[in-house]
Amino acid sequence: MFSIVLNVIGSLFHFYVAHRLYRLDPVRTRVPATAWWVGAVLLWLVYLAGVHLGDEAIDWRWWPGQFALTWLGVMFVMTLCLLAADIATGFGFWWRARAQRVLGIAAVAGVVLAGFAIFQGVRAPVVVEQEVVMPNLPAALDGIVVVMVTDLHLGAQRRADWMEDRVAQINALNPAAVLMVGDQVEDNPLGEPRLATALRGLKAPRGVWAVTGNHEFYGDVETTVREFEDGGVRWLRDRKVELAPGLVLAGIEDVGSRMRAGGTITADLDALLPASTNMATILLSHIPAAPVIDMAAARGVGLMLSGHTHGGQIWPFSYLVQHRFPQLVGQHQVDQMALVISRGAGSWGPRMRLWQPGEIVKITLRAPRPADPT
Rank of each mutant, 00 (worst) to 15 (best):
A290W: 06
G300I: 05
P205C: 08
W95P: 00
T34C: 06
G143F: 09
L273W: 03
A297Q: 11
W162G: 09
M304H: 02
G302E: 01
P135Q: 12
V126H: 03
W63R: 02
T34G: 01
Q313A: 11
R226M: 08
V221C: 05
L154Y: 02
G65C: 13
I360C: 05
M75F: 08
R343M: 04
R239A: 01
L113V: 15
G54W: 12
G344D: 07
E242V: 02
L45E: 13
N171G: 03
A290M: 04
L195H: 04
G201H: 00
Q157G: 15
V301G: 09
H332Y: 15
V181E: 12
L82I: 10
D230Y: 14
N174K: 14
P245E: 08
V5G: 11
M1I: 07
Q100W: 08
A49G: 15
A124W: 05
S285A: 15
R123P: 01
Q336M: 05
G251E: 15
L113I: 13
L80E: 07
I363N: 08
N188W: 10
A35L: 14
T70N: 14
R20N: 04
A244C: 06
R234I: 07
E131Y: 04
V301I: 03
S11E: 02
A280P: 00
P64L: 01
A198N: 00
I363C: 14
Y319Q: 09
T70I: 12
S257P: 00
L53T: 02
G50R: 13
M337E: 08
E242F: 01
M259C: 05
P245M: 13
S318L: 01
T89N: 04
V132R: 06
V128G: 09
M134P: 00
L45H: 11
N174I: 05
T281F: 06
E229W: 07
R226A: 15
V51Q: 12
G262L: 12
W355M: 13
P135I: 05
L43D: 00
M352K: 09
L249N: 08
L72A: 14
I282Y: 00
T277H: 12
W95V: 13
A271I: 04
P189F: 08
R351P: 03
Q313E: 07
T79P: 02
H332F: 14
I170P: 00
W37C: 09
T224P: 00
D238L: 07
L269W: 00
R258F: 04
G54E: 10
P64C: 08
A18L: 11
D270T: 15
S276M: 11
A99V: 01
R351W: 04
A33S: 02
